[in-house]
Design a protein around this nucleic acid. Structure first.
Lengths: 225, 225
DNA sequence: AATATATATTAAGAAAATATTAAGAAAAAG
DNA sequence: CTTTTTCTTAATATTTTCTTAATATATATT
């Protein structure tokens, strides 16, 4: 799950990031709204936490801008909040509020609640990850290239969706192996992965121009959105 | 409950969507009538909220088109409404009106009222799932192919309806087994399922052209609508 | 810059896993 | 007791996975 955190108070943003990361979420953190909008366009965000009081573009405005295109849950973060502000926020499209100072557990509880709710809304709609001209639908267990189906084996599909889900992050060969095989990693395992990566690339139709899976030398693999 | 919202005014549509979602409804939102018709065909809609003033196909026409096939409640949304318009709409098959600007609570109250009415009305009617030329009626415990009855054993029927209910989603062999047998899954269980799937396919009359149940290699089975 | 070393790619075939089919035994239902 | 349904087994077919080895490429060392 990819969570976006936007707060101009560095300490707060860092703290929120820490809590979320500890819980296993993938966190994108930024200290200003302009950057936030960029991240949203580039990543598959599942939930956003926005501070209201921010210079330039404030949290309300940012929330409004996000809602023009996206429907993932938005939680507003604020020092104090009047009922008027609360209503304003909800009208703009915010889903929940957290007032500072907040307890870590409260933050996590609200994040979880919103994600659960969001998932329920979309129960008939599968989550689709888009990577360039490819789409991956884990529920359907289907990978499409320009709408055309690509037949992947179970292992290939697992590898691809694991990389796609951790977009922009390098996954080491060891992590990859242990996550997918659920077995301890041996030096020979890297060869196995390489073969699968090769098959994947072949099936996805990688060309020197259009690369999907990046090799990070001596480390592992990465997929950029 | 699946609610369809159709309004060319983006802000209004988004707002309505928000209110409904906060109330726990599953919302399908679109800004034009053409899209709306598509959604209706693809999803099982329980209630629709239609704006009257829309370019191309207006709310009245859309309402009329929906009524040719469906009988879920339709609520019309409009800026101002004359008595003449009201009568026209009701004749066409609308169930209620809401005039803009509306209060959130009013919207929700009317939605709830209509759903309650619809539910009562349909309580004696069974929910039927349609898959290509097949229909499954869980209450009647009946499966029809082009109106002709197919005799399924209890287990076969359970498997088929479970897959049909989660249309477009892969059900792993393990999930399938545990849901239906209510027992822990053993490797040998997969053989049992395979046999039932084979019998099912035979009875449903699968041909290479007309496939109902898709095998997802190394994972499980899936039914696409 | 040349060489050595480590790591990655590619290809092919063997091995393993999974799926299909069919038939009959066991269990349950009528 | 008969019929229907479910499960087991086994033979066969198919697909996937892994191993190996030859080749290529990148990085480090001198």
């Amino acid at each position: 799950m990819n969570i976006l955190v936007v707060d101009d108070e560095i300490e707060i943003a860092d703290l929120v990031e820490l809590y979320l990361k500890n819980e296993g979420y993938n966190v994108y953190k930024t200290y200003n709204s302009e950057q936030a909008l960029k991240i949203i366009n580039q990543r598959n965000i599942d939930l956003a936490i926005l501070d209201i009081m921010m210079p330039n573009i404030d949290g309300f405005t940012l929330c409004q801008k996000i809602r023009q295109k996206h429907k993932f849950p938005i939680i507003m973060l604020t020092a104090k909040i009047s009922d008027a502000d609360k209503i304003k926020g909800l009208n703009i499209g915010a889903d929940d509020y957290i007032t500072k100072p907040f307890m870590p557990l409260e933050l996590l509880a609200r994040v979880k609640a919103q994600l659960r709710r969001y998932k329920n809304y979309n129960q008939n709609q599968n989550k689709i990850i888009a990577i360039k001209d490819l789409t991956i639908d884990k529920d359907k267990h289907e990978c499409l290239k320009n709408g055309k189906k690509i037949n992947l084996t179970p292992t290939e599909f697992s590898i691809f969706s694991l990389l796609a889900e951790s977009e922009n992050k390098v996954i080491t060969t060891k992590q990859l192996f242990e996550k997918i095989w659920q077995e301890p990693y041996y030096p020979s395992s890297s060869a196995t992965i390489m073969v699968h990566i090769r098959h994947l690339r072949e099936k996805l139709g990688e060309t020197p121009k259009q690369k999907y899976i990046e090799t990070i030398w001596g480390v592992g693999y990465k997929i950029e959105k």
